[in-house]
């Protein structure tokens, strides 16, 4: 069987990204028109979440539902993992349970690559540690391209805890590969100290970082960062990095304000930024379903031939 893995954005070609966004956009139209979007091939997909998630898991379930795939859930609680089984053994077990694809979220960076080594079928990374979260970035890209027409040439500021964020990495790779200018904005303690292999530039000052931005992506600030001493206080962060009615004026008039959720209201964003005309937070959630439909079909090799991009499927087990 010919299949692909979706482990991250970093190793994708721009043409792959364009195909995925195009497929997602087409699924969205068809679902909204009430058309049948059933996949030409039906598969049994395992959802493996070793970390809590509501929206991402529901979104994958919805995507599978629209495509007519069967989904089986597997959580680390109450599973063999809690009895000391290694991740490799769990992955191999699920392979011989005849699951055809795995969607996996795991707290360790690189765990999706490990799963891909041992599964022998498509792996979709639903977030691995602080490394990548490719379907989030694809959903965000669909949202931006709906609002702005194209990604190329846009100025995008990714604001907040970049160091610990898989969303920042995947979005940074995607946007820079598609020709956008990416700026990472945050305190020195929350940006990597060496960005030479990172898809964007560093800005420690919010206002210069978002100046002229077409898109502002806020990242969630975990309370743990305050306990670790990486941020002095929530108040300090709010004062220096919050997107609100005052700071947003430094960006373009029609800029988008995005957030992967869940939001700490009053910290990363105020109510006006979160709920106002700039906000795309609800579109992001909805679009998450359609890019995950695209992701399923793309990994299974069901890419429409109408697409101008030639399929570059890897054959057999990697």
């Amino acid at each position: 069987m010919s299949y692909r893995n979706l482990l991250g954005i970093r190793n994708l070609e721009p043409s792959d990204i364009a195909t995925l966004i195009q497929m997602a956009s087409s699924f969205k139209e068809r679902v909204n028109r009430g058309e049948n979007t059933a996949s030409p091939t039906k598969h049994v997909i395992g959802l493996l979440f070793f970390e809590g998630s509501t929206r991402t898991r529901v979104s994958f379930e919805q995507a599978a539902h629209y495509l007519g795939h069967k989904v089986t859930n597997f959580a680390s609680q109450g599973s063999s993992m809690s009895k000391g089984e290694t991740l490799k053994d769990t992955i191999e077990t699920l392979r011989y349970e005849r699951l055809e694809s795995l969607v996996m979220r795991h707290p360790a960076s690189g765990s999706a690559h490990l799963a891909a080594r041992f599964f022998g079928g498509p792996i979709i990374n639903a977030g691995d540690g602080q490394h990548e979260h490719p379907t989030q970035a694809l959903g965000d890209a669909l949202t931006i391209s709906e609002k702005k027409g194209s990604l190329s040439g846009l100025r995008v500021a990714i604001v907040g805890d970049v160091l610990h964020s898989r969303v920042a990495r995947s979005n940074g790779w995607l946007l820079s590969k598609m020709g956008a200018e990416v700026r990472f904005v945050g305190p020195r303690t929350l940006l990597p100290s060496n960005l030479s292999l990172f898809p964007g530039t560093a800005h420690y000052d919010l206002l210069s970082g978002i100046e002229g931005a077409d898109v502002i992506m806020c990242l969630r600030l975990q309370r743990e960062r305050m306990r670790q001493g990486l941020v002095g206080s929530e108040g300090e962060y709010r004062r220096l990095y919050q997107i609100n009615s005052r700071t947003i004026r430094y960006a373009e008039r029609d800029c988008l304000v995005m957030h992967p959720g869940p939001i700490n209201r009053g910290v990363e964003l105020d109510d006006i930024a979160a709920d106002g005309a700039h906000s795309t937070i609800r579109n992001q959630i909805e679009n998450g379903i359609f890019v995950r439909m695209a992701a399923f079909e793309w990994v299974f090799g069901n890419v429409p031939t109408a697409s101008s991009q030639k399929s570059t499927a890897k054959r057999g087990k990697k």
Partner: peptide, 11 residues
């Protein structure tokens, strides 16, 4: 090592 690669990989 703390450098460019670990920043990229999220390690």
């Amino acid at each position: 090592n703390d450098g460019a690669t670990n920043a990229m990989l999220g390690l």
